[in-house]
């Protein structure tokens, strides 16, 4: 690359090409490093932005359950709880659904329908968060309020212990609604990864199992799933990461109440919805700094979950490659 154009005619042709080669390679490397810089920049900017909150509240910020802009007392417990519980509902409902879709597409579906069906399910992933929000607020929440929630209150709500989860008036909006919407939103992500990893199972394994007289379900449960379990868990964690960071859909339907209640039907808040709701109105540097601290917590949690997911999917890929 130190090859400078010289009077030698053979080198004159080579010279600028070497320079271009160096420049092009340099540019790709530069922007490659830029990706690392973005991640580092996000982390640093969040740490700087939230430093005031941590100086004021220390690590107790994580366990304080008050959120009071009037007295400048802030704690992250309620939003963290909301994020975790809505994601948990999304996983409890979303995983079986996604698994069902993946099994249907890989094992049952006529080949002709496979592609259109996959595209249709993936279109669910293309619909933006805000559309889920509007639809959730105006269509889904009223539906739950009139039908599902009274039903739950009068059946499971009467059972001791777990009844407390389904007690109280049917608000329509609330933690349960947010969790259900998240379940629909993560379905395409999880099911498309499950489908992809299911298809990496060598046909020989499947056919051997069928040859022994296994039913389709037994093949899926005892051959396909054990073979692909790392990838399946990776896909689930990817969905979990998505669910935890989802903002607008949750903001619209969760009710934005800073309190922890035993009932899943009560309004609550999550980290992302608190940010979306309050950030632009946050007056006072401690208020804003506390919100950025929430963002930092979300960043750390989702980074860990997504990195773990990615790690598992890479392992799955290597296994499939061998």
């Amino acid at each position: 690359m130190v090859d400078i154009p010289s009077s030698n005619s053979g080198l004159r042709l080579r010279g600028p090409q070497h320079l271009y080669d160096g420049l092009f390679r340099g540019a790709t490397l530069f922007f490659g490093l830029f990706i690392l810089f973005i991640l580092g920049g996000v982390a640093i900017s969040l740490v700087i932005g939230s430093s005031e909150a941590y100086r004021n509240f220390g690590l107790k910020f994580l366990v304080i359950d008050t959120w009071n802009p009037a007295t400048n007392k802030f704690g992250a417990l309620v939003p963290i709880y909301g994020t975790l519980i809505t994601s948990l509902i999304a996983m409890v409902v979303g995983i079986p659904l996604s698994f069902g879709v993946a099994v249907f597409i890989t094992e049952l579906c006529p080949p002709m329908l496979k592609r259109p069906l996959s595209i249709a399910i993936e279109l669910l992933a293309g619909i933006p968060s805000i559309i889920y929000g509007i639809w959730g607020l105006f269509v889904f929440a009223p539906f739950l309020q009139e039908h599902l929630q009274p039903f739950l209150i009068h059946t499971i709500g009467k059972v001791p212990l777990i009844g407390a989860l389904f007690a109280g008036p049917p608000f329509g909006i609330g933690i349960l609604t947010a969790g259900l919407i998240l379940a629909i939103m993560v379905l395409p992500f999880i099911s498309s990864i499950m489908r992809d990893v299911f298809e990496t199972v060598p046909p020989m394994l499947r056919e051997s199992a069928y040859g022994l007289g296994c039913t389709t379900w037994e093949v899926v449960w005892r051959v396909v799933l054990p073979y692909t379990k790392v990838g399946v868990v990776g896909g689930i964690m990817l969905g979990l990461g998505r669910a935890m960071g989802e903002t607008m859909a949750v903001t619209f339907v969760i009710g934005n109440a800073h309190r922890i209640t035993s009932s899943l039907m009560a309004p609550g808040t999550t980290i992302s919805s608190a940010l979306a709701n309050e950030f632009t109105e946050a007056s006072g540097s401690i208020y804003q700094s506390s919100l950025i601290a929430l963002g930092l917590i979300l960043f750390v949690i989702t980074f860990i979950v997504l990195a773990a997911a990615k790690y598992m999917l890479i392992r799955m890929q290597r296994q499939a490659g061998n």
Binding site: G32, L33, I35, L36, I38, L39, G41, V42, S45, L46, I48, G49, L238, G241, R242, M244, G245, E246, T247, S272, L275, A276, F279, I292, G295, L298, F299, T302, F303, L306, A307, A309, K310, I314
Partner: peptide, 25 residues
């Protein structure tokens, strides 16, 4: 590998965090 890994994490990272970053930046 590191760049690809981080890129894949950014692909699924919450967009609201990116918003916070640009806000500060």
């Amino acid at each position: 590998q590191a760049i690809q890994f981080i890129n894949d994490v950014l692909l699924s990272a919450p967009s609201i965090i990116v918003g916070l970053f640009v806000y500060q930046l």
